[in-house]
Design a protein around this nucleic acid. Structure first.
Lengths: 231, 231
DNA sequence: TGAGCGATATGACATATATCATGATTAGTG
DNA sequence: CACTAATCATGATATATGTCATATCGCTCA
């Protein structure tokens, strides 16, 4: 991890209207001056489960995973998050600790705002507080929702669901590079690495996707949708 | 569902200190006067997924389940909640709709506070707002946590985990009546009714629990803990 | 009070998924 | 550039779990 040298500000941030457009000039100055920016490379851990929450994290670019490690040392990925999502969960209001770990799955730029500053702004600007709240609760809602979707499917349906997730939510394209290893896909949808690989190979053999290493092309979108809906 | 006739107030509520002790007399009057109380019997649906959120619900006595119905009509229970837990999720701040259904699994008394009133108090009393926020985020945190615990175990471990949950979190006793059917247990821990029944029977045959209909007695707590930790 | 339905129970069998083994390929690193 | 370790890949087999069938029990309500 290293500090970013890029000159930037919340004002020019593309995600500004998601969050900061309700701040007064003074509030904005407070937030922006306390703000640090960090760059993490693929694999780097941004926060560990149990770390104290002392800042408000905001994903500027890249892709991260939220995950928890179980008692056997096996990781379970809760969600993949892209810019615009909040990383810090609601726990930041209870001044608690992280309930899961956060790692970069590709080069990722993170904004870091001191929690004391954020609290100050939140307590004086009601509109902003509500905005923060909304964005944050979305993260947990999404986790619960996707876990629900995963647990009602079996292997093929889960893989299909995951491919649709990448197609529609992450890349908005039928062609993309898998951002995570097959092992991580397994950790995300609760199945073994072997079965993940096997199922992707099967999809390829059946001609509904093409696959060259990490590069995937959704050839038969409707068929994948069908598998996601029935498997 | 029927209105409760019991004379009660937030002031004398046993859960008062969890939430209402930071209200001024005036705020308290506002909340308490808008407050309605309802009683639901076992099986009654309190809210359905998709219902608009127009009130703040608070569980006074009884036990409820939060659940979602999948595309095949199968229910998946997200959590069992007891008094002191908040039913309304954070979505109440975005004035949205329920993301899951809520049903009573035993006779349950629910306090219902008009959302407009709650918003008013929240926007003027910061301490209260934070309190509400904390209690509400706990519900989603708990759901995510328990789903994580379930998904890392297999059948026996899940049943053992569920028995420990009832023992430690719900009844605080080694002897209790199962609040839900075997089918619902399956819906909670993602397994079939048959396997749920089989596993409970096996635990009984092995002498680690006694079981007479819905009445369970944890005979060998350490053994169950062991199964929960390794299975 | 008894007809009927859901819950509990259990066995036989089918199937999904995990595990283990073994190579080939790829990516990172000195 | 070569070495090492991770990733990807696939088959054989074991195991966990689901499915289907059938029976009893015990409510609930007409």
């Amino acid at each position: 991890m290293k500090p970013s040298n890029e000159i930037s500000s919340c004002k020019t941030c593309v995600y500004r209207k998601l969050l900061f457009d309700s701040l007064t000039e003074e509030e904005y100055q407070m937030v922006n001056s306390s703000r640090k920016e960090f760059i993490y490379r693929r694999g780097e851990i941004i926060r560990r489960e149990g770390d104290p929450i002392d800042s408000f994290l905001y994903l500027r670019s890249g892709l991260i995973k939220l995950y928890k490690t179980d008692r056997n040392g096996k990781d379970h990925i809760l969600s993949l998050n892209k810019p615009g999502d909040f990383i810090s969960l609601l726990s930041i209001f209870s001044n608690s600790v992280y309930k899961y770990s956060i790692a970069a799955v590709e080069e990722t730029k993170v904004c870091d705002i001191d929690l004391v500053i954020l609290h100050k702004v939140v307590s004086t600007n009601n509109k902003f507080a509500l905005r923060v709240l909304n964005r944050m609760s979305k993260v947990s809602d999404d986790i619960i929702e996707s876990q629900f979707e995963i647990r009602q499917r079996q292997v093929k349906g889960r893989i299909a669901f995951f491919l649709l997730f990448l197609t529609n939510k992450i890349y908005r394209s039928h062609e993309f590079r898998l951002p995570i290893t097959r092992r991580e896909i397994g950790e995300l949808i609760s199945m073994t690495t072997e079965n993940t690989i096997r199922t992707l190979s099967e999809f390829k053999k059946d001609g509904i996707i093409s696959m060259e290493g990490r590069t995937i092309n959704i050839l038969d979108y409707e068929r994948i949708k069908g598998i996601s809906n029935t498997g």
